[in-house]
């Protein structure tokens, strides 16, 4: 008589599945140094939130089934009443939360926010605060929650390759872009649509000279010397947040300025995606009306 009370193993011997070798790598669509990776952006993905957006970044060298390298979802809750303990505020209180999903990166993440996630949250708050017209909403608060479903990391990279955290730059720029779309979807007054962009100083090969590239897929390069993530308001021509990391070779003093200028180009490109996505948000409503 078989044991029906618990889940039993198979009766006979079994063999582990053997897969064929992975499908041949598709020919890498070489990304030009002065372009950013393709962005998918859609608003209104979370019905329960006041505003929401979803962002995907294309992986130009896709050899995994998903063919993406970054997946972010952002929900905006509010404007809503502040908790009773909060003091009177004549403007909106912005609170941002950035959280990696436990499976988002090669290194598994915990459920509590760690220091890097809090760091991203602070950067995101600074970037958004410059764009929001805060005094249109007195006595209210808004929560902006970004969940990183897939971090911008190469899953096939060898385990021992040191992770220097350059992918956080790309994640932050994605967070800024997706939060900007979600805020506009929520109907919170903004002076402009803020967008994030990254430029990095990289060496492609061990002996190649350093070059500035936009939106670097970190695993494609031998070494990243420095990276710069900027949040930018294109209509106003204002920068709301800037995050520079790394060491610049001392020879060229204008290198820093050039990197910031290049990241502004990346911001403008990302902003065009935001504008298109927001136009698509409104258009179906217009046709039915």
């Amino acid at each position: 008589m078989a044991d029906r009370r618990r889940v039993n193993g198979p009766v006979g011997p079994t063999a582990p599945p053997v897969y064929n070798t992975a499908a041949h790598k598709p020919i890498a669509k070489e990304k030009a140094d002065n372009s950013i990776r393709k962005i998918f952006l859609k608003t209104g993905v979370t019905p329960s939130a006041s505003g929401s957006a979803y962002l995907e970044l294309e992986d130009p060298k896709a050899n995994s089934p998903s063919s993406t390298s970054l997946k972010l979802t952002c929900t905006v809750h509010g404007p809503r009443a502040l908790p009773r303990s909060a003091p009177f505020s004549p403007h909106i209180i912005l609170s941002t939360h950035v959280k990696y999903a436990p499976f988002a990166t090669k290194q598994r993440r915990g459920y509590l926010r760690d220091s890097s996630e809090r760091d991203l949250g602070v950067h995101l708050e600074t970037a958004l605060r410059g764009a929001i017209i805060a005094d249109r909403w007195p006595k209210s608060g808004v929560d902006i929650i970004v969940t990183i479903i897939e971090g911008d990391q190469d899953r096939n990279a060898p385990e021992n390759k040191s992770d220097e955290g350059w992918d956080m730059m790309n994640v932050l720029s994605g967070c800024i872009t997706v939060a900007s779309a979600a805020i506009a979807d929520a109907g919170i007054d903004c002076v402009d649509t803020v967008a994030g962009g990254v430029a990095a100083l990289v060496a492609r090969q061990p002996n190649s000279p350093p070059a500035i590239v936009l939106d670097p897929a970190v695993s494609e390069y031998h070494k990243v010397f420095a990276a710069c993530c900027v949040a930018y308001l294109p209509t106003r021509d204002e920068i709301t947040n800037i995050w520079f990391k790394g060491q610049l070779p001392g020879a060229d003093s204008m290198l820093y300025n050039r990197m910031v200028e290049r990241s502004l180009v990346a911001c403008r490109n990302a902003n065009r995606v935001v504008i298109t996505a927001l136009n698509e948000t409104v258009r179906p409503g217009k046709e039915s009306a």
């Binding site: 006041s50 404007p79 409104v282 409503g285």
Partner: peptide
Amino acid sequence: PPSGGAVGGSNEKRE
């Protein structure tokens, strides 16, 4: 702001 009916929200989304 666009009326919420098209985006899935049944009532007006605007706060």
